[in-house]
Simulated assay, not measured.
Amino acid sequence: MSSNSTTITLNDLPSSLRLPPRLSAHKYFFVCTLTVAAWDTLVLSPRSWKLLKSEGWPILKTIFFFLRIFMPAEFVIVGVAFFDTAWSSSVSTACQKFFLFEPISTTFLLAACSVVHVIRIHGIYDKNRSVLYGMSALLALQVVVTAISSAFYRSVPLDAGQGCIAGPKHNWVGIYWLSVTFFHTASFAMAVNRSIQSLSVKLLTPWKLMLRDGLNLYGAIWFVNMVNMIFWFVIKPNSNNDTIKTVVTSMTAVVTTTMTLRIILSVRGTLHYGGSFTGTGSTSTGTHSGSRGIATARVPPNAPSILQIHSHTHTAHTFTIDGISQKVEQGWDGNEGKADVLPIPDDDRKGVKITVDREIADFEPPRAK
């Protein structure tokens, strides 16, 4: 009794399964990109709904929902062309009409993300116009470079059934992503610099500083863009149909978008004008009265309240209170921010009564005659 065995070689497989190693890695990595986009869409849904119900439509809120819809829609469409075996550049004219979709769409996506960074950096620098002009100039440079570079992409010549992928016609087309990386390097540096400046007000460990100011978000964007630069300018393609340069571009766009969404959600204070910086607060310095046994912390007439400490002991001290109205901004959803507690010396705790009086007006009512 004999049995017939069939040996299948690599050449017997259809071209859609007979992928070069780098193209195969590219397709696996794009699956990861789609997974990140889908996961981010789901995990941010509760906070997105809360933001949607908030009052008004400032620029940051409008861009937030644009990015929420546009980013997953773009890469679902790109994914169809990427994996559909009928979209091969060598057998379908559809790819020749479609391949510019990703670089052009990503231009709009990245521009919207960069607008968020301009507004937010302007906000944390207390609406400094020099910061606004500088970041706006980098944004304009990015938009111009990415728009021009988009015209110099091509359809990578792949075998039938291997999909439709856009690639650069020339190596200099990498300035598309170089301009984006340059912008986010400046954004990351400005955010770090602002956080370091705040250490003169309140010392924090690097870990707490990073979490408080969202430096991990800016850093993640910078990191993925720098990795993308390695693929564009360091790693060399093996042939004309090697897609190695664009392996990380889709992931870079998705991570830049997801981290930018979280930057919007982490804004302290109102979303108008980029919010405020959490590392500083307004401090009023109190002055003491000359009466024995009473220490009164006075603030300007327009302050919301006055904290008075009355001592009923005969040995109470008269002292000056600093920083009693330390202001900590809350987030747009009212959940962020924590008030500091004013400590009372141990030797003055006995017989001390603390009352909070709110001023209704800064004038005295007329006295009855």
Results as ranks from 00 to 15, higher is better:
240 N>H: 11
241 N>W: 10
210 M>Y: 01
216 N>R: 01
219 G>V: 03
230 I>Y: 13
241 N>E: 08
241 N>A: 15
219 G>W: 00
225 N>H: 12
235 I>W: 08
240 N>F: 11
216 N>S: 11
245 K>N: 09
238 N>A: 15
228 N>L: 09
239 S>V: 05
234 V>G: 12
218 Y>Q: 01
248 V>I: 13
238 N>R: 05
217 L>M: 10
212 R>S: 11
214 G>K: 01
234 V>T: 14
225 N>T: 12
228 N>K: 01
232 W>V: 08
237 P>H: 03
238 N>G: 15
237 P>T: 09
244 I>C: 05
247 V>M: 07
227 V>R: 00
248 V>A: 07
216 N>Y: 13
221 I>M: 09
234 V>W: 14
223 F>T: 15
221 I>S: 07
225 N>Y: 07
231 F>K: 06
210 M>W: 01
241 N>L: 07
236 K>W: 09
246 T>I: 13
240 N>K: 07
211 L>Q: 07
246 T>M: 08
233 F>Y: 15
241 N>G: 15
229 M>T: 14
229 M>R: 06
210 M>K: 00
246 T>S: 09
229 M>L: 15
230 I>E: 00
213 D>R: 06
243 T>R: 00
213 D>Q: 12
235 I>K: 06
240 N>Q: 12
230 I>R: 01
229 M>E: 08
231 F>G: 12
232 W>S: 05
236 K>Q: 14
226 M>A: 11
225 N>V: 04
238 N>Y: 09
223 F>H: 04
220 A>H: 03
219 G>S: 02
212 R>I: 03
231 F>Y: 15
220 A>Q: 06
224 V>H: 04
236 K>V: 15
230 I>F: 14
223 F>V: 12
248 V>S: 03
236 K>M: 11
220 A>V: 14
226 M>H: 02
224 V>N: 06
247 V>Y: 06
237 P>C: 07
215 L>N: 09
214 G>V: 03
228 N>T: 15
243 T>V: 15
210 M>F: 07
248 V>F: 11
241 N>I: 10
245 K>L: 06
218 Y>H: 08
213 D>P: 14
223 F>G: 05
222 W>T: 04
235 I>L: 14
230 I>M: 11
225 N>R: 00
